[in-house]
C-alpha cells in the first residue's frame, strides 16, 4: 500500500545506492592497496646504503644515490626555468593582455600543451634539444623538455591565483600612483603567492613521477659524478631519474630495487600531496590539478 506517511523503499534504488558505494570504495581500496603493497614489498630494501651508494658489482653495493641526484638536478633546474616563465605568462594574460585575439591564442596554446602526452614531449625533446641543438642525452635536454611539459600547470595555477586577488587592490594601487609592474611586484604577486606555490609543488610532483618524456632525453645513467667539478658538468651528462631506474629495474627483473624506488617515490608523492593540502588549508586557495 502506498502512503505518504510510510517510507517506501524501492528495490532498484537500493541496488543503485549499493553500486554507487561500491564504486566509491574502489578508489579507496585501490590507493590503500597500492600504498600497503609497495610499503610491504619495498620496506626491506630501504637502508642507508641503498639511498647513499650507486650500484656497483666491484664494491658489491646496490644503491640509487645517482638517480636521486639526477632527480634533484632535473626538478631544481626545471623549476628554476619554468616558474618565472609560467608566472610571467600568467601575469601577462591576467594583468596586461589587451588584444583579445592574442590572449585567446595563448590560452588555446597552453591548453593544447597540457593535453600533449609526455611521450610526444620526449620525442620532440630528443630531436630538438638533443639532436638539433646538440645537447644529446643530458640532464639539460630532459630539463628543457620538462619545462615545456609543466609550463601549462604553472601558468594556469598562477592565473587562478591572480583571479582571486580582488580588483580593489589593483584600483587602490593605481589610485596611489603605482605603476603596473610596481603593483604586480608589491601587491599582486604576494597576494597570489599561495596559489603560485601550490602550482610549483604540483609541478614538482609531476616531474618526480615523469618517465616517458625523460627516457629518451635525459638518458639512464645512474652513476654519481667522481669529482666536485664533475657535479657541475653533470648537467651536460646523461642521468636517469628514479622513475627511469624503476622502469629499467623492472625490465631486468630486479624487483627488489624496483620496489625500493617505488617506495621512495610514493613517500615523495605523499609528502607533496600533504604539502599542497597544508597550503590550501592555511591560505584557502583554489587550485587546478
Amino acid at each position: 500500500m502506498n502512503s505518504i506517511t510510510k517510507k517506501k523503499v524501492r528495490v532498484s534504488d537500493a541496488f543503485v545506492y549499493g553500486l554507487i558505494y561500491l564504486c566509491a570504495g574502489i578508489s579507496v581500496l585501490l590507493i590503500v592497496g597500492i600504498i600497503i603493497y609497495v610499503f610491504v614489498k619495498g620496506f626491506s630494501q630501504i637502508n642507508w646504503e641503498f639511498l647513499t651508494t650507486t650500484t656497483s658489482i666491484l664494491k658489491g653495493t646496490v644503491g640509487i644515490a645517482g638517480n636521486i641526484l639526477n632527480t634533484v638536478y632535473i626538478v631544481v633546474l626545471t623549476m628554476l626555468l619554468v616558474t618565472p616563465i609560467g608566472v610571467g605568462a600568467a601575469i601577462y594574460l591576467n594583468e596586461y593582455a589587451k588584444p583579445v585575439r592574442l590572449v585567446r591564442i595563448i590560452e588555446l596554446a597552453t591548453e593544447t600543451l597540457s593535453g600533449i602526452p609526455s611521450i610526444i614531449f620526449g620525442m620532440f625533446g630528443m630531436m630538438f634539444f638533443g639532436t638539433t641543438l646538440g645537447l644529446k642525452y643530458s640532464i639539460l635536454t630532459g630539463t628543457l623538455t620538462l619545462t615545456l611539459m609543466v609550463l601549462p600547470l604553472i601558468t594556469r595555477n598562477t592565473q587562478e591565483a591572480l583571479k582571486t586577488v580582488p580588483d580593489s587592490y589593483r584600483h587602490g594601487a593605481v589610485a596611489l600612483g603605482a605603476g603596473k609592474w610596481y603593483t604586480i611586484r608589491t601587491i599582486l604577486l604576494p597576494s597570489a603567492m599561495p596559489g603560485i606555490i601550490t602550482g610549483v609543488i604540483l609541478a614538482v610532483g609531476r616531474i618526480v613521477g615523469e618517465s616517458a618524456a625523460l627516457l629518451y632525453t635525459a638518458g639512464s645513467s645512474d652513476l654519481l659524478p667522481a669529482t666536485a667539478k664533475a657535479y657541475l658538468g653533470k648537467i651536460l651528462q646523461p642521468g636517469g631519474t628514479l622513475t627511469i631506474k624503476l622502469y629499467l629495474s623492472a625490465q631486468d627483473g630486479e624487483f627488489d630495487v624496483a620496489f625500493g624506488i617505488a617506495l621512495v617515490l610514493l613517500v615523495i608523492v605523499l609528502v607533496i600531496n600533504m604539502g599542497t593540502k597544508f597550503i590550501a588549508k592555511k591560505f584557502d586557495v583554489n587550485r587546478l590539478n
Binding site: I34, G209, T243, L246, V269
Partner: peptide, 10 residues
Amino acid sequence: ELLAAVPSVI
C-alpha cells in the same frame, strides 16, 4: 587525489 599522483611506472 592520491590515485592521480601515483607515478605511472608504479
